[in-house]
Structure formats: structure tokens, C-alpha cells
Design a protein around this nucleic acid. Structure first.
Lengths: 343, 343
DNA sequence: CTGTTAGCGCATTCAG
DNA sequence: CTGAATGCGCTAACAG
């Protein structure tokens, strides 16, 4: 491990430490003769000197480090990290991972204060809203940005996707390809049906779109269960329906179940069953046969935007209380699960 | 932000800083009266004091921080992070992410020295071997562990999977289910066929297994191309083969292509085409219809083992030059793509 | 304009 | 057994 300090550099260049520091940080209102400047730079090169960011941080009251918290079991957390990583790298920040085992916020605070992290980024579930955490953030004046959380609370900076728009995009696409009134398939997690903010946005958007096109909304709601447990229901439903049918599933898992049921029944996806997913959270759509068309939440881009905003807050370019929302648009992925027919 | 220091605690408890420090670290060979000890602990609670790990690190020459580098575009990097995160969390280390855009090692060194990171973990491709990086690691005496890299170089600690064994497991499973001599399908990346260490391990294992069972090895080798470009070849091959056929693909992508070709030809996976993948790198196998059977590389577990080893090296429990390999076994995931027939 | 000094928060000496 | 002093590497405020 390199043990070269600014003192060593100063000594070698025949100047004092402060000069080295000033040159490195090009401190405003300082003038060093070109000669000494060059000799210092040379010494730095010769000794292969690297500043110790910890020590700098200790002095400046900063860490140049942000923490990203999320659920380590969901692949979209990684997507977000991808975007956040790129931004923090180019801004000179390091990204610390914090994968809470159970998703509790409390330990994160301890982590934050002990490491003196400069700011926090969390990947939340849509409609996440924890008042206590919010309170903590405010009392500690922690620079904080949430991904997909606090959609209806303006006291938090969050990066959100326009779910309503995503549904419109999907329906427009489907309707253009297949002149069959789309059925909305809504899968939900948990024991009981408790639609969150994103769910409500999507459902409302579906209804609006259908009305605008003079069509009757058709909604099927079903709890998310493993295929093995629930296959009977799916096979029965799909077997009893008049094909061809066109389905928009709020979650790709629903579409996946349709694939399985169709396989059982000998029906063809993209011909007998036209189906589209309103997300690509599990990142498997392009591997399905045939490729599942979907609307993708741009997680990486969201992570990037969130990191950018966070760093702006940390560096004072953005006031901590100036907590607007950042909206992103969905992306349409065109597969083969929606066929083509001419009206 | 909490600005409570050990000085504040000392003041409140009516003792000096050193006592606080001693109690916190229970410094060996120190004896504090139970009374003062309790009052210090109380002061810590009252003030909600949290040690500043940076400052501690500055003093002790440690950061309590390890860096994980990998390719941010591959999902198995995330798998590895999952395991590494859990271990570092419980050991009091923080995990810094380093997603090199192009995968270059050089910037990582600068990062390492500037942040004074305690150790490095890299997710490498099988058979990765960069002599220059190795040299850097040694001259800087960096605690370092590679995942899947340097399989044949004992000067590096690496965590590896037993590929030979994985192929045996797969073939045993297939042969038990379907009495058709398995064809080995080898997909390769890059312009030309250049099998790496893992590839060679697998292929050799296939040949050995076939010979042991008195069967003739049948190998198909094909460059990895997008489906759209290469579908003609796949459809033609599968169309010309005598079904039922049993195929073991070194990479799940090959199996995925077979699914597509079968779909085109109206053949059934698990009946006309029995297929198995020797990996689950893209983590899509369970979503395919029907579920693709495979051998899974336990990336999370590997990440955990690697982090454990790294921390042992950092803390001196393991000598830096004592660089053995850590071997892990594959895991069999039983899907439906291999049917069942009785001999 | 340069060079000296103090201090960020801690752990570890060395005196008392 | 306890308290004051030193220094980790750096930057900011200060004196020359």
C-alpha cells in the first residue's frame, strides 16, 4: 500500500504542504509561480502520490460517498445501481451498497451517521411512504432521494415513472396492431387486494383510455401465486375465453402465466392470445418464446437521475427543501406477443 | 447531521476521551471502574453518540471498507453482491461498488489508493488472467480475491465452481430421465472459437462421461449471435434432426434458441426436444415455458465466501500469501424441459 | 503572495 | 488506573 503523503511531496518539491494542497484543489485566490507548480506536479508524479480522500473528507466535513439502499433480491435494484454508479463515478463519489435484509430503515441511519455518508438513495416500492423515516431524514437534514417512493408527498425528492402514460402507450400499440378490445389483467401481491399508487394510476389510465375509445373496460384481478398452485385457474380461464383475445397485464408475471396456460391448451401466443406486459421488472420478457412485448420502466435512467439530484443536494446546488419530483417516461419494447391483423 | 463526538461524551460523563475510547474498543489491559463505565455508556445513549468510522480508520490505518468490482451489465454480478453484502454487513465492513465501464483494472487502483480501501473483490470471467493486474496487487500488497478468475494460478485467492462436476450432475440427471445419448451444444462468444478454462473443463467432463457410459460424444459448436440473425441455422438444424433428441447446452442462451426453433417447427420441449442448460446466468430459466432445467452457479454463495476470505486476509487471520482456491458445488434446478420416459 | 499553524475525531502513547 | 499530549493526512485560516 502506497504510503506517500502530501508531506512527502512537499518535501521533495521543497515547498510546504499547503502549497501542494492549494495546487491540487486549485484553491481560489492563490497564485503559485509556474516554476514551483511544475516542480510540485513532478514530485506528485515521481512519488505516485494519491490524495487520501478520507483525510480530506474529515477536514472538509464530507465523505464524497453516497449510500444506495434497496432490496437485494430484486433485479431492478441492480438496474438502478447501474445508473447511479455511472453518475457517482464521474462526479467523484463512491457508492456504498446497503442491502437491508428485511428492508428496515433504522439500521440505515446508524450506518449513515457512523460512516458520515453524504447522502442516501433508496429504491422503494411504488407508493412507499414511511412517515417515521421521513421525519428522521428531516431532523438529521440528510440529503435524500427516493426512487418510486413518496409519489404523493412533496416534502421528498423522488424519481417517478409516469405509469398512466405507460398504459396509454401500451394500449395504443395493441390497438394499432390488433382490433380486439384489450382486457386488463391485474395481478396483485399480498393477501388481499390493496392497490398502491402505481396500481391505481395504471388502472385509471386503462379505464380512461377505454372510454375514450368507446369500449367497455374488462378487468380481471388475480392474486399472485406460484404457477404450480394456481395453474388450474389460469387454464380454466383461458380455456373458457373466446379467442383471439388481447390482454394487457400490469405485471409480466401475469403474462408469463398466460404463456404457460396457452402451452397447456395448445394455443399460440401472438395469434390466439395477444398479450403485453406493462413492466419488465423481472427482465425476462425478451427471453420468452415468442418475445413478450412490454413497457419498460427505465430503472437505470432513474438511478442516474436520482444520483444526480442527490449530489446536487449535497453540493448545495439544490436546496434540501426544494424537493420536487422528477418524472421519467416509459419505454416500449416491441416483441412478438402481439400479432398483426388488419382491420 | 449528528455532531456528537467522543469529546462530548467524555465531558458529559466527567471523564476524558481516552476512557470513552477504551470502553468502546474494550482495549486490552485496561480496567475501568464499573461506575464510570456505566456513566459513560449512559452518556453515549443520552447523546446518541456514534463513532466516526472515518476518523477511527484514519488513526488505525484501516477503512473497514471493501470494494467490489464487476461488470454492471451482467446480472450475476448482482448475485455476487448479494452474498458479499450480507457478509460484509455482519462483519462491520461497508461494500463499495465499482462498476468499471469498460472493465479496465487501472482506474480501480487509483480508486483503491485514494479511498484507502481495505481490500478488493472482482467478479471475473472464467479463466480471466491478467498478469499486470496481478503484479499490481502484489507490489501494493492489496488484499484481493477473484471470483471465477485465475483458476490456474495459485498466487491468487479465488473462488471457483467445479464445472466438471456440474456437467456430470446434468448428464446423470438427463440420462436418468431420458435414455437418449445427450448431444453437447457449445455456444461461444467472440469472433472465433477460443474456449476458456471453464469451457474446457465442461467439454472434457462431457467426453469423459460419455466414454464412461460407452457412448459416442456428439458435439455441436456454434457462435453466439442474436436470434434474429441466426434463426435460419437453428431451425434447419432442429428440423433435420431425428426426434426425440436430448441436448445439454453449455449456456442457457443455446437452450433458449432451441425453444425458439421448436416453437417455429411446432415441436414440444420436454417431449420432442429434451434440453438442459449448464448455467442459469441470465436467470430466466424458470420463466421459460416449460421451465428450463439447469445447473446453477451459486453466485451469491460464491460472493459470500469471497468476502469472508477477503476480510480474513484484511484482519490478518489469513496470510496474504496463503492463496488457496475455494471450490463450490453447482446446484441442480429441476424444471420440465427434460421429460420422463422409462427404459 | 508564501509558509506556518491549528484542528477535523479518533486511538494510542506517555506522564501522573 | 486515569488524564494530557501526539499524530493519522489533509485543508483553511492565519501570520510573515
Amino acid at each position: 500500500m502506497s504510503r506517500v503523503t502530501s508531506k512527502d511531496v512537499a518535501q521533495r518539491a521543497g515547498v510546504s504542504q499547503s502549497v501542494v494542497s492549494a495546487i491540487l484543489n486549485n484553491t481560489p485566490g492563490i497564485r503559485v509561480s509556474e516554476e514551483t507548480r511544475q516542480s510540485v506536479l513532478k514530485a506528485i508524479r515521481d512519488l505516485n502520490y494519491q490524495v487520501d480522500i478520507r483525510a480530506r473528507g474529515l477536514r472538509k466535513g464530507r465523505t464524497y460517498c453516497i449510500a444506495a439502499m434497496g432490496n437485494m433480491n430484486t433485479p431492478f435494484f441492480f438496474q438502478m445501481l447501474q445508473g447511479a454508479m455511472a453518475v457517482s463515478l464521474e462526479s467523484g463519489y463512491s457508492l456504498q451498497l446497503y442491502g437491508a435484509p428485511g428492508g428496515e430503515r433504522e439500521p440505515l441511519l446508524g450506518w449513515f451517521t457512523q460512516r458520515r455518508i453524504d447522502g442516501i438513495l433508496t429504491q422503494d416500492v411504488t407508493s412507499y411512504h414511511d412517515a417515521q423515516w421521513l421525519n428522521t431524514v428531516h431532523t438529521h437534514k440528510i440529503p435524500y432521494v427516493s426512487l418510486e417512493g413518496y409519489p404523493e408527498d412533496d416534502r421528498v425528492s423522488s424519481v417517478l415513472m409516469d405509469y398512466a402514460h405507460s398504459i396509454e402507450m401500451a394500449l395504443d400499440f395493441m390497438w394499432d396492431r390488433v382490433p380486439i378490445p384489450p382486457v386488463y389483467l391485474e395481478i396483485y401481491g399480498g393477501r388481499e387486494y390493496k392497490p398502491n399508487w402505481g396500481d391505481r394510476q395504471r388502472l385509471a389510465s386503462y379505464k380512461t383510455w377505454m372510454e375514450r375509445n368507446g369500449l367497455e373496460p374488462q378487468i380481471r384481478t388475480r392474486m399472485d401465486r406460484p404457477w404450480a398452485e394456481d395453474q388450474a385457474w389460469w387454464v380454466e380461464w383461458l380455456g373458457s375465453v373466446r379467442t383471439p383475445i388481447s390482454v394487457l397485464s400490469n405485471w409480466s408475471r401475469g403474462a408469463n402465466h398466460l404463456y404457460r396456460a396457452a402451452y397447456r391448451l395448445g394455443l399460440r401466443i401472438g395469434k390466439d392470445i395477444h398479450v403485453m406486459a406493462a413492466d419488465n421488472t423481472e427482465r425476462v420478457n425478451e427471453y420468452l418464446v415468442p418475445v413478450l412485448s412490454s413497457i419498460e420502466v427505465p430503472y437505470a435512467e432513474m438511478g442516474a437521475k436520482a444520483a444526480r439530484r442527490l449530489i446536487d443536494m449535497i453540493e448545495g446546488k439544490k436546496d434540501l427543501n426544494d424537493t420536487g419530483k422528477i418524472w421519467l417516461s416509459p419505454r416500449l419494447i416491441e416483441g412478438e406477443s402481439i400479432g398483426r391483423s388488419f382491420r
